[in-house]
Design a binder for these strands. Structure first.
Lengths: 297, 297
DNA sequence: ATCCAGCATCAGCAATACTGATGCTCATGG
DNA sequence: CCATGAGCATCAGTATTGCTGATGCTGGAT
């Protein structure tokens, strides 16, 4: 079979596990089968995709990976999309959101939805951007709320989300989070360009990813020595307060954090926005919540 | 096999041909095999995808199509991407571009490239946006030049082009093409909103697609009764001159057309832009042309 | 030099994916 | 109303494919 999705899945798994045998175990195959999958792919593409000992992707393998992951995700999305068309679970409401998207307004809307439909089984999952998009694509979540920074007219840059409907549900000023004793902390507003050379924390799943700031500022700056992994906004604020680096977030969310000064950014024109993503087919409660969120904006 | 790409290819082909037997012939299968492919897909997804007699996609089938086409395109793109990595044909330079992207500057750059490398076999293909992107993805072209309208900071909206590198190579005012005797023809400039209710020609492959105007103007207007299929800009200008409807194009390209008045649009802020798209791996002549185009801007 | 963890290879078997023949069904025309 | 035929479904048979389990091989560690 030419470029079988199963083979691609195997390939991705081998890369992730850095081992043929481990990938085999994870996929429920024998090591032999995995070896044959990789050999078939390499024969098909007429190029080695993996080095052995240690197992790592070659240049071609890395190129293939860049295609394989979105490809497999979209395959799952297609299946989920059609499954939803057949059977919409009406008693469930699963929400996936990034930390900055879970605002009081969202929480209130959810509470109201549960009051109106008491038998509704609701769930909220806070996770990173990619995971939230993936949840909405595969049907693990009915709705995804994703926050980020962009120019006022631009949509948020969300890869692989092409088959999801997207709506802005909230827009507010973007703020830099500074330690309260930072020299710039007293300013009423700041220009992003003046901060490009500062020391930043990249917390792509807890705050606004630096990549989005770079894109919005058309800048190569915003270097970082510290990467913050995880979705806990509070932990990040502690780091910022301690002077470990700067971060960017919605102004209201950052307003009253202890030890933190949140200063709005006025230049370039950039806002913090929450977008609602969902598949085209929605269950009744999900559609109602989506409607409520859109109205509330 | 679960959601085999071959099955998806068969499905797409059946939809395109509106016939099992015709699809079979096109794919080199027997009709029986096609029937089994479709049956397997329908069994897998547990839903009918096609009506028979006449053969047409169901709702679920249409949903699947929306995923299947980009999926198959990306599969081809992955293969082409890796093939390029192995073997870059150095004596070839294939350019795919939309009509509005083939400017004198591009032509001059191409002439210069051929002067510098006389043995170079060059080709230019003028086609629609989707076809140009597809050519760059599958390796049918080394470079793609695509024009369109967008806000100055926004990239052009190009679906499925995620794995291609994109650079703006030219930006110029966007103009409305009016018949020379149109009441607004004498104006020095126009606002797009004032034209939303006008009668437009949608020529998505010859001029700026109305969808891009709608997106840039955040408007639902720009209705059209006339769709112009094809990539011939001249033919479109004849229609506009005859009063069949309005179209949008780059101001310089439209400047001296007979019977046409080209009036720049000043509101909202919107420009006509040409973007260069190419895969990450380029042959030497392709890289040089790309570099020349980027420098010239 | 030896060991061994881990990938490659091979033979054999089970599942699959075709083909070609045939059956069935709907639309059409007399 | 029936006869006809175009076109999809189904079935049996066969070639191919894709697994498993056993064994071979190789490079790094001791």
């Amino acid at each position: 079979m030419l470029m079988d999705p199963q083979q691609l899945r195997t390939f991705v798994s081998v890369v992730d596990h850095r081992s043929f045998s481990a990938a085999a175990q994870a996929l429920g195959y024998t090591q032999s089968a995995v070896s044959q999958h990789i050999a078939a792919l390499e024969a098909d593409l007429e190029t080695p995709l993996l080095t052995r000992r240690p197992v790592a992707p070659t240049e071609a393998g890395r190129r293939l990976l860049e295609h394989a992951r979105p490809l497999l995700l979209r395959l799952d999305a297609a299946r989920a999309d059609i499954a939803r068309l057949r059977q919409v679970r009406p008693g469930r409401l699963a929400l996936a959101c990034t930390p900055g998207a879970l605002t009081p307004a969202v929480a209130h809307a959810l509470v109201r939805a549960r009051t109106e439909a008491p038998r509704l089984v609701a769930s909220v999952r806070v996770c990173g951007r990619a995971a939230a998009v993936q949840a909405a694509l595969t049907g693990a979540a009915d709705l995804a709320l994703i926050d980020g920074a962009a120019a006022p007219t631009d949509p948020l840059p969300l890869p692989d989300a092409a088959s999801l409907a997207a709506f802005p549900v909230r827009e507010e000023p973007l703020a830099v989070l500074l330690p309260a004793d930072h020299p710039l902390a007293g300013r009423p507003a700041l220009r992003l360009a003046d901060l490009a050379a500062a020391r930043w924390i990249d917390a792509p799943d807890a705050a606004v990813p630096l990549a989005q700031l770079r894109a919005a500022a058309h800048s190569d700056g915003f270097g970082h020595q510290l990467t913050y992994t995880g979705t806990d906004f509070h932990g990040l604020s502690v780091l910022v307060a301690a002077g470990a680096g700067l971060a960017a977030a919605a102004l209201p969310a950052a307003a009253d954090l202890p030890g933190i000064a949140a200063v709005p950014i006025i230049e370039p024109r950039i806002t913090h926005r929450v977008e609602l993503l969902h598949p085209r087919t929605l269950s009744a409660p999900a559609a109602e919540l989506a409607e409520a969120l859109r109205r509330a904006r």
